[in-house]
Amino acid sequence: MRRRYKIGAGIIAGLAIGVGIAMWSQTAEFQVLDAQGEVAKKQLDLLIFASTLSLFVMIPVFALVAFISLRYREGNRKVHLYRPTWDHSNVAETIWWGLPALLIGVLSVIIWTSSHDLDPYKPLVNDKKPVNVQVVALQWRWLFIYPDEKIATINHLTIPEKTPINFTITADAPMNSFWIPKLGGQVYAMNGMSTKLHLMADSTGDFNGSSVNLSGKGFSKMKFITTATSETQYKEWVKQARAAKSLDWEVYTQIAKPTEKTEKQSYKLEDAMLYDKIIEKYMPMHETSGHMKEHGE
């Protein structure tokens, strides 16, 4: 009987895994593990290092569990020493306060240095001039503004490879999180505020990006493709985008209305202050609604 249910459980587990692997189509990829940018690569290294470090705890624990439960089980034919009142050992307890403390000590150093090194607010530096991109999370799509190139796009982001990208991020919607896994970690997009993220693509290619923080009914549609191109292609692309229809505050208010449409758009940016205006919408000093105004000043 005992054996039978173990076999049964094994069959179920095996079947499940089999089905899963069978259905796992060719396209599945571990985006976090397939880093294509400097930041993502460093983050991946950290992940691998910390996982390795944790094996120092996991392996002894699992080994001890197996060893002790087999050795001291009641049914064991070879009877081992039974010490019902043995409940304290300074040496042993020092070891397991000390050893984890040591590991965590090492990890703490890593946490401290990596938090500074990989601070999303820290600009990336190389010999190229960074590209500024202003990101606005809308309901429910992404608006990317290139203030220097004077263009804007919706739901697609094109960047030159090997060039630092300085993202400034806000929202005209509930809070979202801006994430391009292959390039590096996420930062929240919040209205009335501007957060920063610095990323860089090490090679050309298409990378998935999305919102990872629940923002309402169209949340799962907030995806975009990041295309990293060569510098010349990028310039070409900018030129094309500039030929598109223009984007000013008027047009923006149309775009900002809630929609679940996902198609890509390109615009010529007419209003250089658009990003700031979007933030100021929520800023107190510019609040014009409310009948109290006439009392105030």
């Binding site: 976090v32 950290l46 990596s114 990989l118 994430w179 970690g185």
Partner: peptide, 13 residues
């Protein structure tokens, strides 16, 4: 693993 902020950026949410 997730207590390391730089790792958390990649797996949070």
């Amino acid at each position: 693993l997730m207590s390391v902020p730089a790792i958390d950026f990649q797996v949070h949410n």
